[in-house]
Every structure is written in structure tokens, then in C-alpha cells.
């Protein structure tokens, strides 16, 4: 790794760390797991920094490495934690001007938590308002396939949300 500018790398990760946080929140179930995943993603970013030549936007590259790490680093004990909520560090207001309550946010998170890891990755990029072309570049499928996947995931979410609302 000689010759790589560590300071440049650290500045980059510090500046764009919200991307890593978002991925960690989506894939890790508790504070310790989030911390571990953040650490692992940082290691992978550093390892991949050697081959990053600026051909993709920095956020695209970071999302790609972070999501690849989160999906491939699944450990056996992680399965147990799948039902745990991933929103422990959110302290939403009771209701805002748009009318989204704490319950709305919790329900969205709970529904997302029930998706499989690939669907979670795609919906995260969609929620972050990434263009279909960028999602296709990160995930490695065609733009059309991205559209189809998002429609299906939204349908799944709708089903889960309806089910949850009926229970409530």
C-alpha cells in the first residue's frame, strides 16, 4: 500500500462517512454490529483505494464497496438478529409538517428489515434518490432490471406494511 496517500483517503472517508453510516444502519442490527461493519467497510475502502482511479463518482464507488462488504460479510450469528430493529439511534419527533409520525418511520424500518440483503441494498439506493443508471452501476444489473426490481421490492414493502398495519 506504499505510495497511497493516507491523508487523502482519511479526508475522503471522513467527509463521506454518512454513506457508510447509512449502509451500516441498514445492515447491522445493534450498535456493536454497526461499529464492526463500519470498521470492515473502512478496511475494504482502503484496500480498494489502490484501484480506484476516479472512473466512477466517489459516492458510487463508496456505495459499491460498502454494500459489497455488508452483503458478503454475513456471519452465522447475524441470522438471529434479523428481526431486531435497526433504528435505535433515531429520535424522531412525534409528528412533523409532512405528517410522518414516529410510527411511520418505525414501520418503514421494520418493513425494510424483513427484506433480503440484496433487496435492502437496492431499496437503500432508491431511498437515497439515486438514478437508475447509478443503481445499475453499483449493483451490476441492467437499468431495466433495476426498474423491475424496485417495483417488486415496493410491492413487497406494501405487503409488509399492510400486514403490520392490520396487526396494529
Amino acid at each position: 500500500m506504499k505510495g497511497l496517500n493516507e491523508k487523502e483517503f482519511l479526508d475522503l472517508v471522513t467527509k463521506h462517512q454518512n454513506i457508510i453510516h447509512k449502509v451500516c444502519n441498514m445492515f447491522a442490527s445493534d450498535e456493536q454490529d454497526r461499529h464492526d461493519l463500519f470498521q470492515e467497510i473502512t478496511i475494504k475502502l482502503w484496500m480498494g483505494y489502490r484501484t480506484y482511479k476516479g472512473q466512477a463518482a466517489i459516492s458510487t464507488w463508496m456505495y459499491r464497496v460498502a454494500l459489497n462488504t455488508a452483503i458478503t460479510l454475513q456471519r452465522k450469528e447475524k441470522r438471529k438478529a434479523e428481526t431486531q430493529a435497526l433504528h435505535s439511534n433515531i429520535q424522531p419527533a412525534d409528528e412533523n409538517a409532512e405528517g410522518y409520525s414516529k410510527t411511520d418511520i418505525e414501520m418503514l424500518y421494520l418493513a425494510i428489515n424483513k427484506l433480503d440483503s440484496v433487496d435492502k441494498a437496492i431499496i437503500l439506493l432508491y431511498l437515497e434518490e439515486k438514478k437508475y443508471d447509478e443503481i445499475a452501476e453499483i449493483i451490476g444489473i441492467s437499468r431495466t432490471h433495476v426498474g423491475v426490481k424496485i417495483t417488486r421490492i415496493k410491492r413487497k414493502l406494501e405487503g409488509i406494511l399492510n400486514e403490520t398495519m392490520e396487526k396494529v
Binding site: E6, F9, L10, D11, V13, T14, Q17, N18, H21, K22, N25, F38, Q39, T42, I43, W46, H87, N89, I90, Q91, P92, A93, N96, E98, Y100, D104, I105, L108, Y109, L127, E128
Partner: peptide
């Protein structure tokens, strides 16, 4: 809803030194 949730998140921002230790 996602945007609002993210705005209200109380994230711990890591310092450059912490990120170096992660690396």
C-alpha cells in the same frame, strides 16, 4: 419518510483518527 428519518438520526461522527484506527 426516509429523508426525515435520516435528518433526525443521531449519528456518531467518527474523527479522522478513529477512521485511521479502523483502517
Amino acid at each position: 419518510v426516509w429523508k426525515q428519518a435520516n435528518q433526525e438520526q443521531n449519528l456518531h461522527e467518527y474523527s479522522s483518527d478513529e477512521i485511521r484506527s479502523f483502517r
